[in-house]
Each structure stands twice: as C-alpha cells, then as structure tokens.
Design a protein around this nucleic acid. Structure first.
Lengths: 93, 93
DNA sequence: TTTGTTGTTCGATACCAATCGAACTTAGCA
DNA sequence: TGCTAAGTTCGATTGGTATCGAACAACAAA
C-alpha cells in the first residue's frame, strides 16, 4: 500500500460512483458494508468494477463472508499516507 | 468556481504531469510562473493541454503578459472549497 | 438437491484523455 | 519589416475507462 501514488489515488477518487461508495463507508463509521448495501443506480458488473478500482488503489479492503463481500475503508493507512484525504471526501458538497 | 465538484478536481489532479505543475506552483509560493518555467518532458501542445485542464477545474488562474501566460494557484479558493487538498499535493512522496 | 442471493468475469461498445507534430497567433525585438 | 519566442488550436492516434448484459461460481437456505 505504501506504493500507492498520489495520482493513482486521485484517479481512484475521480469518479462520482466511487466517491459515493467511500462516503457510504465513512457514514458506516468503521463497520464493514456488503457491496450490496451501497446504493447506486448502476449494474452489478459496474459496481463490482468500481470496488475493484478502489481496492487496487488501496482505498478499501474486502473480506468474503459467505457469498457477501464485506468492505471497509483502510482508514488508518490512508490517514497515514494521505493525511486529510478522507476528511476531504467526507465533506459533502 | 463554487461549481467545481470533488470528482472533477480529483480528476484534474490524477495526472502526474499536472501534479508536478501544482507542486512547482506551490514551491513558487504565490509567485506566478510562465508555462515555460515548468519543466516537463512533454511537448508544448501537451503542456498547454494540461494547463487548460487545471484551469477548467479551477486549480489555477492564468493571465497573459505579452506572449507569456503567467500562471498562479488559486490557493485561497481551493483552501476554502477543498481544505487540506493543496497541503496533500504538496507532501511529496 | 434445487433455488435464490451475491458477487466476479468476459466480451463488446462507446466515450474520454494523453500525446504529438504542424500550423497558426500574438507580442516583442532587431 | 522580418524574426524569434510563447502559447494555442487542430487533427490524428493511441490507450484507457465506464458501462452493460450474459454467463459463471460459490455459498446458503428451503
């Protein structure tokens, strides 16, 4: 995760859907969410794609539980590597 | 500028060239730079393109002086609208 | 075992973005 | 009046990205 660059993480957060996902996770305050719990008017395939992008960029962490994949923010690492970033995303505007 | 969205500004900052431009401007500490003064191994045309993207996203402001276009960061507005963002970009890593 | 839920993968499409060279514009200078 | 320097614009190319439906896999529950 320490090899995630600033442009890469900006890229990951440059899509409205992905911003929405991160905001939902912020609202969940540490609780992991199933992909399913995140409301977005896009197909399953596209949603899966966006989660994959966030995962690759080190923004989220996913763990399978049965058929669900529980997703949580990698808040600690993000705050260390990119301090202020999550707070910025959290400010909704 | 208040109509600049978070995804849009993230998008503008998702390119290494543009990050480099912003960092040079941060180093200049408020002094305006000519496009020419920013070192990048890309063509004039591409450089012009990147400046345009930053301008559209509200990151920079450009003023013509003779044949040069002097560019400065819109630091005040950015800090108001996206607090912490510039500081984040400034941390080089 | 069958069925439904959850999510991934694949192939296709359509769009957007980075890059360049070349031609152009504008301003300053000799 | 040329000549140069600084940027912009254009057209073309290339590569990436968002999106979807359909097919698939894995697990749970009936």
């Amino acid at each position: 995760m320490s090899d995630v660059t600033l442009p890469a993480i900006m890229q990951a957060l440059s899509d409205p859907c992905r911003i929405a996902i991160v905001r939902d996770l912020l609202k969940a305050e540490g609780r992991a969410l199933a992909c399913n719990e995140v409301r977005l008017d896009i197909s399953k395939a596209t949603k899966s794609h966006h989660f994959e992008v966030l995962r690759s960029a080190g923004v989220i962490h996913t763990e399978m539980e049965g058929t669900k994949c529980m997703t949580s923010l990698r808040a600690r690492e993000l705050n260390k590597q990119f301090p202020g970033l999550l707070k910025l995303v959290g400010k909704e505007k």
